[in-house]
Nucleic acid binder design. Structure first.
Length: 377
DNA sequence: AACTAGGCT
DNA sequence: GTATAAGCCTAGTTG
């Protein structure tokens, strides 16, 4: 395809640049060979030194730290990005187009995850690129059948709303009841300034911690993910928990309950057993604790969208609509819609998705339409 | 088959 | 002293 060839020529250019920088050819796709080139030949020293079982890691986080130390680094980062998009999407997807239908069909696996999410395979259509110019181009290849349109409806901040409900944290609940920007408000709470004075940097840090909380992030993790120092990161987290004591309680109570019962569960009672929660091995136990913290949140979001899918399908059938529910991406549903049904489908998703579950905070969706998955408005 | 890396929510 | 952010799927390399 066109895109593959343009990706291919960009990669060839980068390949030459990389060999020129280094002085010889090698397999850039081999982490082992790349590691030898960067750390043995060029003597580069990553700030956070080692990693991986077999040697020095060359993953993107490490290369980012080395960006200014040697010109080859930027070429490698760009090469890696294009290589991923080409091999996983641009080259692979066309081969999976069904001969009879002329279309791409994924498998949605209903029992493959520990939290209750769906997964998607052959191809995975839940991880199509969305960032960057090339990423967007790939998504634009996902189109509705001739004459039809795509409609996408995604839940706004569903995990944080689930967390607000589960934890019953007063501040988090109030934020969503007032329909405020949750990251901006967290920044305001943690930095002690009015919402209107929150800067882009402050909001970005708050966004990282809002997601980090759901995953049981540590001070170290926050430091790695931001440009904060270790001390700033620790202070940031402890301040967050002072402002959101309900969230802190949720984390402590969930760990305790998981240890006592051996499992955690979602709002609808979906369980995940976590035997490692009482492991004598601290690393294994702490990993188990993070799973315990995350599962009720991620799993409740999965419960919500599954209820919405059933309710929507039932209503679409009752009305005899031709619209097809085509994709689910954890907090998003994508429909293929005949133009004549677009107005009613917008009303239906707006009616049914937010009502899927009654929580302590409102559920909200954003709706977009367009000719393909990359250009929706 | 294991490992590394990286795409998404 | 060591590791440190949840859940997935796929591709390329290595042995």
């Amino acid at each position: 395809m066109e895109m593959s060839t343009s990706l291919g020529s960009d990669m060839l250019r980068l390949e030459k640049d990389i060999y020129n920088c280094v002085g010889h050819q090698f397999n850039i796709n081999s982490p082992q060979q790349l590691s030898a080139v960067l750390f043995n030949e060029l003597k580069l020293k990553p700030a956070s030194a080692r990693k991986t079982q077999s040697g020095y890691s060359t993953d993107a986080a490490i290369l980012e730290e080395l960006k200014d130390d040697h010109p080859v680094i930027r070429f490698v980062l760009e090469y890696r990005q294009l290589a991923k998009l080409k091999s996983t999407y641009s080259d692979a997807l066309p081969l999976l187009i069904n001969r009879k239908t002329g279309r791409l069909h994924t498998s949605f696996n209903q029992t493959g995850t520990t939290t209750g999410r769906l997964s998607s395979s052959q191809p995975n259509l839940q991880n199509l690129p969305i960032r960057g110019e090339t990423g967007s181009k790939i998504r634009q290849a996902i189109i509705a059948q001739p004459g039809w349109l795509l409609l996408s409806a995604d839940y706004s901040q569903i995990d944080l709303r689930a967390l607000a409900h589960i934890s019953q944290d007063a501040e988090l609940i109030a934020t969503f009841q007032r329909d405020e920007d949750v990251h901006t408000h967290t920044a305001s709470e943690v930095f002690g300034v009015p919402d209107a004075e929150v800067t882009t940097k402050m909001r970005r840090a708050a966004k990282t911690i809002n997601f980090g909380v759901i995953y049981g992030m540590s001070g170290y993790g926050l430091q790695q993910a931001t440009d904060l120092t270790r001390e700033e990161a620790e202070l940031f987290i402890s301040t967050y928990f002072k402002r959101y004591p309900g969230v802190k309680n949720y984390i402590d109570n969930t760990k305790r309950q998981a240890a006592a019962l051996g499992y955690v569960q979602t709002v609808l009672g979906r369980r995940r057993y976590i035997p490692e929660i009482n492991s004598a091995n601290r690393l294994a136990r702490e990993a188990a604790e993070r799973m315990a913290i995350n599962m009720p949140v991620q799993g409740t979001s999965a419960d919500i969208i599954k209820v919405a899918m059933v309710n929507l399908h039932r209503e679409m059938a009752r009305r005899g609509l031709k619209t097809m529910m085509t994709l689910q991406v954890h907090d998003e549903l994508v429909f293929e819609v005949p133009p004549a049904e677009m107005d009613i489908m917008k009303l239906l998703v707006q009616d049914i998705m937010p009502a899927a579950m009654k929580l302590s905070v409102p559920l909200k969706i954003d709706v977009k339409t367009g000719p393909n998955w990359g250009e929706m408005a």
